[in-house]
Design a binder for these strands. Structure first.
Lengths: 206, 206
DNA sequence: TTTTGGTTTAACTATTTGGTTAAAATTAAC
DNA sequence: GTTAATTTTAACCAAATAGTTAAACCAAAA
């Protein structure tokens, strides 16, 4: 079997777009082929089936994100410092690859178990993360709350505005795409500020 | 044309489930018919087409939510008080109808314009909402931030955990569904607390 | 029992979809 | 120009899908 690397990549990129926009069942192999400027037969030559292509695309999407994100919690930084870095990197990454949330959401609906397994196969260790948060709380640096709640809140604040892009743009910003872009750009710092204002216990005066 | 109200409702409920779980393109008319315990021909007799059924179901989903939610911002309450009520009612409503977020997300992907128009046709007035937030900020009750950012944050914190249910359950709670239910139940108060801690400026000592 | 209201059946349709195949065509490398 | 590598074509397939139709059936009401 002979393959061309450029063609292979081009298919993946366009599948990424199609699957991210339409989900697995809504995506069309013909559409992916059209986007990539190839014919459908070549698609099957390279990736065998819709499902196989989807799996590879999903894995690649996560490879874009996880290593950089893990770095932000691997250090001895405080939780607040880690959140600042995490939020900035997360939002930046999704700005570059806005299909990722769509991907995740569609996969949540259709094959949640597969998605959970995929995430678990990455370097993310949620137990360590929870422990780190609990430590900072035990040291009186953070407001007491279930670590899970904090993790959910961070993810919610990072992800949702991307998924809700048309709503945010159409309902809050009069359809102004530049304003949306600015709102997201601002969130790189504003989300972390919002969270830290809520959870950080300032050192008491002694 | 003769219709039975019970049959009509039964179809809607089951369509709600099917569309909420699988999105428009993933949902199957035969599957909806199976769920409702009828045959597919009756489905078309009652609702003509997949698209027509979907529209009616979408509208009904919003009718479940919007009036109660609007009430929380229609009063002279402070923004913080309103957020408390909003979050509680929002989370309660989605706990009763967990398909709604799935619905919204799928519609965002496929027909965002339609969704924006649908929301705009409801009683929600985002300009008034933004104004109310701005007023509380101008009066020094709230931390300065773009009202849009606050609205996005509130929605994110309310909606995301429902959409991410399998991930939250599988990654943070060891697959424990009871723990997930508890986490959501707690959020009725915790989300508002989290937000208010972040935005509320306490009255200074005089 | 008859009539009316509502539902099902069974067979069908046109279209779309993911996938296949071998030969022909095109491009790239030498 | 020749050979190898890659892609396209064109035709096809089976299955699935939303939707259709008229007659038959069943249940409820009179």
């Amino acid at each position: 079997m002979k393959y061309n690397k450029d063609t292979s990549e081009k298919i993946l990129e366009n599948a990424f777009e199609e699957f991210g926009e339409n989900g697995y069942s809504g995506a069309r192999m013909q559409s992916i082929a059209d986007r990539a400027g190839i014919n459908k037969a070549l698609l099957h030559y390279y990736y065998r089936s819709k499902d196989a292509l989807f799996e590879i695309v999903m894995k690649k999407a996560f490879q874009l994100m996880v290593p950089r994100l893990m770095k932000t919690f691997d250090s001895d930084d405080s939780v607040c410092d880690s959140i600042e870095k995490f939020v900035e990197i997360y939002i930046e990454t999704i700005m570059k690859h806005p299909q990722i949330p769509g991907f995740v959401i569609h996969e949540i609906s259709t094959k949640p178990d597969r998605l959970v397994r995929l995430i678990q196969s990455t370097e993310i260790n949620f137990d360590l993360l929870k422990q780190k948060i609990q430590n900072d709380m035990d040291e009186g640096k953070l407001v007491k709350m279930a670590p899970e709640q904090l993790i959910v809140n961070v993810m919610a604040l990072c992800v949702f505005p991307f998924m809700a892009k048309p709503l945010v743009t159409g309902l809050l910003l009069d359809g102004d795409k530049k304003a949306y872009k600015q709102l997201i750009e601002d969130r790189k710092t504003e989300v972390a500020s919002f969270i830290i204002r809520s959870i950080k216990i300032e050192e008491s005066k002694s």
